Simulated assay, not measured.
Amino acid sequence: MLSATAIVISALSTSLIRKRDPAGAPGDHSARSYDETHRRVRFTGYDGMFEVKCFVTVDVLARGLALRAPGEREYLEALDKMRAIILDAAKRAYNSNPPVAVLLDLSNFR
């Protein structure tokens, strides 16, 4: 089995490469997506060659937002701004018991 500490959150890493989507918004939006139904942002991590689905709830992302009604764009930007914190929380959650998917909520950030 691969080392759990090898997890790399690719969506967060690639978001550092600033691109523009067709609408002109900065960021690589293809690497992560907003799920309005479940109120979370999905991104992908890797443990060696194994893909790990990762999710972070909007409650976590909204902590730093001043907007009353943030939407997809604001949540994706918040994910980029909180990259280091989210990456650390994802590694801790994955290392504690490597699941098929990692779901990060407020309890992962205390």
Rank of each mutant, 00 (worst) to 15 (best):
T37S: 13
E77V: 12
V58K: 02
G45L: 04
R110V: 13
F109N: 05
V41A: 08
D80K: 06
S96P: 00
F50K: 12
P22M: 00
A23M: 06
D105N: 13
Y34V: 07
R83L: 01
V60C: 08
S96K: 10
R39I: 01
T37A: 15
R73W: 10
A90I: 06
G45H: 02
S3F: 07
G64M: 00
K53I: 10
L67M: 12
L79R: 00
D59A: 09
T5P: 07
D21E: 02
L12C: 00
T44E: 13
T44W: 11
R73E: 13
I86G: 00
D47Y: 03
R20W: 08
A101N: 14
S15D: 15
L16D: 10
Y34K: 06
I9S: 08
I85F: 09
I9L: 14
R63L: 12
S10D: 14
L12S: 02
A11Y: 07
E51V: 15
L87I: 11
V52P: 05
P22K: 00
R63G: 05
R42P: 03
G64D: 04
L87R: 09
L104M: 03
L104F: 06
H29T: 10
F55I: 10
G71T: 11
I9R: 02
D28Q: 05
F43R: 00
V41F: 07
P98G: 06
L104R: 04
A89R: 01
R32L: 08
R110M: 10
P26R: 11
S10C: 11
T5I: 05
N108R: 07
P26I: 11
L87P: 00
R40I: 03
A62M: 00
I7R: 03
G27I: 02
M82G: 01
V52C: 03
V41Y: 12
G27L: 02
I86C: 00
D80Y: 05
I9E: 06
D21Q: 00
L67F: 06
L2P: 15
D105A: 09
F55Q: 12
K19E: 14
R32S: 09
S96C: 02
E77I: 11
I9Y: 13
R39W: 01
V102T: 01
L12Q: 01
R32C: 07
K19M: 13
V56K: 05
T5R: 13
L2V: 14
A66V: 06
Y75K: 07
A90Y: 00
S107R: 11
R68F: 03
P99K: 08
R40K: 13
A4C: 05
V52M: 06
S107T: 13
R110A: 14
K19A: 13
M49I: 08
D35K: 09
H38E: 14
T57L: 04
I7N: 04
D47F: 02
A69Y: 15
F50I: 11
L87C: 12
T5A: 11
Y75F: 15
P98E: 07
L104H: 03
R40L: 09
A6G: 15
L2C: 04
R42N: 10
A78T: 04
V60Y: 01
S13Q: 10
R18Q: 15
C54Y: 01
A23Y: 04
A6I: 11
E36V: 03
D59Q: 05
R42S: 14
D28T: 06
E51Q: 15
N95P: 02
V100K: 08
I85K: 14
A93M: 07
Y46K: 10
A78V: 04
L103F: 14
A89V: 03
A31R: 14
F55R: 09
I86L: 05
